[in-house]
Computed example of a mutant assay.
Amino acid sequence: MLIYDTIRKYSVMFNNPILHPLINVVDLSKSPLLPKTRFMLAFYAVIIKETRCGDIRYGNQYYDYDNGTIVFFGPGQVITHEPEGEMHQPYGTALIFHPDLIRGTSLVKYLHQYSFFSYQTNEALHVSEKERTLIDGCLANIEAEISQNLDKHSRTLIVANIELLLKYCSRFYDRQFYTRENVNRGLIGKFEQLLADYLTGEKLKTKGLPSVAYFADLLHLSPNYFGDLVKKETGKTALEFIQLRLLEVAKERILDHGKSLSEISYELGFRYPQHFTRFFKQKTGVTPIQYRMH
C-alpha cells in the first residue's frame, strides 16, 4: 500500500510542481499511467473527476448532474484505485491540504460539519455546470494564492477559499439529497422496516439498542451519509429516530400490566432497570411507573 504522508510526495507522483509544502492543486492528467493500487493519505483531499455520468443510473433514475464527480477523503482513509484495465490514465483535479495548514484557524472548529469527508466513493457528489463553475472558481483562487510569493495574508486567504469551497459542496449535497428524493425515501422505508424488525425481535433483548452504524452497514451506506440522509428526510438524527421508535415500543409494553417494569427494561435491551427509567424520563418527563399509573 502506498502512503502519501506529504503534499510533496503526492504532487511528485502525479508529475505536478510543488507550490506550497502544505497545499496543492494537482492536475491529475499530468500523471503517468497508474495500476491498481491501495493508498492512504495523511491529509485532506477533494478530488474532481472529469467523467460525464449521464448514462449512469442511481436507483431507477439517470444522473441529472454530470459535469464532475467529486469525492472527499480525510487523513488516514485507505483508498483503492481500480482501473477498468491493467493501467489507467486519471483525469481531473485534486485539492490536497495538510491538517497543519488549517491548525489554529476557524476551519478546524467547523470541519466536523463537513461529514462528506467520511462518505464512501459511491456516495460522491455530482455537480451541474453552474455548480462546477463555482467549484473551479474556488480552486483557481487557491492556486493563484499558492503560486505567488507568500506573505502574512496568504494562509488566511487560502483557508478562506477552502472553507468557501466546502460550503458550496455542502450546499450541493443538500441539493443532491433533494433531487434523489424518491430513492432516498426508499432507503428510509427500508431503514424503518429493519428497525421495526429489530425492536420487535430477539436482538433487542440480547444485543441492546442498535447503533447507527449497524443500519448503515445493512443499507450499504457509510454511517455519515446514512446519518445525513435520515436527518434531511425526517428532521431528526438517526439516533434520535431510533430512540423515538424504541420509546413507542416501550410505551406499549409499559401499559401491559402482565409484566414488571424490570422485565420490560430487560426485554428492551437495558442492562439495568434504572437505566431504562432514566432514558424514559429523559424522553417523556415522567418515569415508567408514573406513565403506567396514568
Rank of each mutant, 00 (worst) to 15 (best):
P223Y: 03
L187F: 15
S11T: 11
Y291C: 07
E252R: 13
S29D: 14
V25M: 05
V71P: 03
L165C: 07
E131L: 01
Q274V: 12
T37S: 08
L244E: 15
L150S: 11
T206E: 10
G92H: 01
I264A: 08
H98E: 03
A140E: 09
F116S: 00
D197M: 13
T234L: 13
S118M: 03
N149Q: 15
E181Y: 15
Y225Q: 01
I158V: 13
L165W: 02
D136R: 10
S115Q: 14
H220Y: 12
N161T: 02
P99A: 03
Y214D: 00
L268F: 07
T179G: 00
G76M: 07
Q243K: 11
Q120W: 12
E233F: 08
G208V: 11
E240Y: 05
E86M: 08
G68V: 09
S118I: 00
V108N: 02
G285W: 06
E248M: 09
Q243T: 10
T287S: 12
Q148N: 12
K167R: 13
R38W: 08
Y272A: 14
T133I: 11
L22W: 06
K232L: 07
Y65K: 07
L134N: 06
D174Q: 12
G201H: 05
P83C: 11
T284Y: 01
G189S: 10
K283W: 11
L107W: 04
R8Q: 13
L134F: 05
P32V: 08
I3L: 11
Q243W: 08
Y4W: 12
S154C: 04
P223V: 04
L125C: 09
N67K: 14
A196W: 10
H88S: 09
I188Y: 02
E192S: 13
F72V: 12
R57E: 14
H81I: 13
C138K: 03
E263Q: 13
Y10T: 03
D5C: 03
D151K: 06
A144S: 10
I158W: 02
A213F: 02
F177G: 06
R171F: 15
R271W: 10
K9F: 01
P223H: 06
F270T: 01
F117C: 02
Y62S: 14
A42G: 15
Y58C: 00
I142N: 02
H88P: 02
K167C: 07
S211P: 08
N161P: 03
I3D: 10
E131T: 02
T6G: 04
R103L: 06
P21A: 07
F97T: 01
Q282L: 14
D228R: 07
L28S: 10
S211K: 13
P75A: 05
L247Q: 07
G137Q: 04
G285V: 05
Q148K: 15
Q282V: 11
I242L: 10
I162L: 04
N67T: 13
K281C: 07
L22Q: 10
L166A: 05
G186N: 09
I102H: 02
A160C: 00
V12P: 01
